[in-house]
């Protein structure tokens, strides 16, 4: 399987994501620069953490207009899996690929520590290899990670089983303890915690690997609509 890791000016977890899927899982990956209008022949896209365009204006607000995001939009519309981690999640909500917004942490502080996440659904290409209710130890590192959406959107997310991860001990004030969500078509996921920083026992936890393993297993067992993906290349 080949992962595409998007690199914005200011991305800083791009190498971590690359390392997690290549060195740790033996898959292929390539970096895709933000002004690229094409994603090449990748099977899944990762929008990594960092501070795209300095997080100026709002986190993700400038990144959403970059050429590569047009390609990501098309890829997602054709059913390709797109994973946004931390800043990548912020970019996806700004781009309208996921609902809601990520605002300043309730306590105002930048928080960098391990949290525990409960896997709320396994009906997604990102958690299919996990167990429902499985608790993952994964770090967070963000100042603007408080998930916000209006009540109607939150109800809809819950009714459609689109909340993927919840914090067991909500660190940032996220509404309904939401740490990660899915798009309606379930092929786009955003999460504030960093699974790529928990992808090797040396890191203190390898619990994040299940997210990437799910993608790899999904690709091996059920090829997507390859004609659609081919058409956008």
């Amino acid at each position: 399987m080949k992962f595409g890791v998007i690199v914005f000016p200011g991305s800083n977890c791009d190498h971590d994501a690359f390392y997690a899927v290549t060195a740790n899982l033996g898959e292929k990956a390539e970096f895709i620069w933000h002004d690229s209008a094409s994603l090449g022949d990748v099977d899944a896209v990762i929008l990594p953490g960092g501070f795209a365009y300095g997080d100026y204006l709002r986190c993700g607000a400038i990144a959403k207009f970059s050429p590569v995001m047009q390609a990501v939009r098309k890829f997602a519309a054709a059913g390709g899996p797109v994973l946004g981690i931390c800043n990548g999640f912020q970019v996806l909500v700004e781009a309208g690929l996921l609902p809601g917004a990520l605002i300043r942490n309730r306590g105002l502080k930048f928080i960098c520590r391990e949290v525990r996440l409960r896997t709320e659904t396994t009906d997604s290409p990102f958690t299919a290899a996990a167990q429902k209710g499985q608790v993952l130890r994964v770090p967070i590192a963000h100042g603007e990670g408080c998930y916000f959406a209006d009540d109607r959107t939150l109800d809809e997310l819950e009714a459609e089983d689109r909340v993927v991860f919840r914090y067991l001990d909500n660190p940032n004030g996220s509404l309904r303890d939401i740490a990660g969500i899915l798009s309606r078509e379930r092929n786009v996921m955003g999460m504030m915690p960093h699974p790529e920083r928990a992808s090797d026992p040396l890191m203190g936890s390898a619990d994040g690997l299940v997210v990437f393993q799910s993608l790899i297993r999904g690709q091996a067992t059920q090829p997507r609509n390859s004609a659609d993906i081919e058409a956008i290349r």
């Binding site: 204006l57 607000a61 207009f65 809601g100 917004a101």
Partner: peptide, 8 residues
């Protein structure tokens, strides 16, 4: 479109 995020 740019300066404000109408969601919040």
């Amino acid at each position: 479109e740019v300066l404000a995020n109408p969601v919040i």
